[in-house]
Design a protein around this nucleic acid. Sequence first.
DNA 1: TAAGTATTTAGATATTTGTCTAAATATTTA
DNA 2: TAAATATTTAGACAAATATCTAAATACTTA
Lengths: 95, 95
Amino acid sequence: MNTVFKALNDKTRRDILELLKDGDKTAGDIADHFQFSKPTISHHLDLLRQAELLTSEKKGQYIYYSLNTTVVDELLKWVLQFTPSFNQNPAYENK
Amino acid sequence: MNTVFKALNDKTRRDILELLKDGDKTAGDIADHFQFSKPTISHHLDLLRQAELLTSEKKGQYIYYSLNTTVVDELLKWVLQFTPSFNQNPAYENK
DNA sequence: TAAGTATTTAGATATTTGTCTAAATATTTA
DNA sequence: TAAATATTTAGACAAATATCTAAATACTTA
């Protein structure tokens, strides 16, 4: 969870995740949406990948980035523990 | 959302939130669960309060801290936008 | 009112972070 | 194979962060 929260603690990185909801994009396509240099965006992509919020795949000259929703599910569970309904619903029984 | 993610980007602060699931606690009670100095914990509590993840109430000599689940709901919505089911379910219709 | 307890504020410092430019790597195309 | 394109790596630097100790504030109790 540490790397996940670290990755999410930046507006640009959160915006990148939202961009990728619409479908996979290359590093360059992603960079074009922001005013930062390409190395800066590359660094953000790296942190998102470290947190496994993204996956990347090289196709020829390009690298395509995609959302990885597996970690999102873990995050969702983490957040749900704080919702009032969580402890009332036996489906979420906590050890 | 910025202050929320900032507040969550620290293990100690996330642990404080989990502590408070069991019920309200004073600043001192909270501090006793950690190895850090009281000023350090006080600072963490401040950041959590800035993010409105906690509320505080003074009672005599003590200050009681409580979870504030309102902001948790906003966070939950933010996370849900990335779950596959989100866009399929008309209940979560997005502007 | 003086001493004790609870908590925060202030100020210092080492570490982490976000950004940049320049250079390196890998692929495609002329 | 040389030039162009896509992306990352390396290294530098300013700003933000987490921590500490010392001091201040506020309340309670002897």
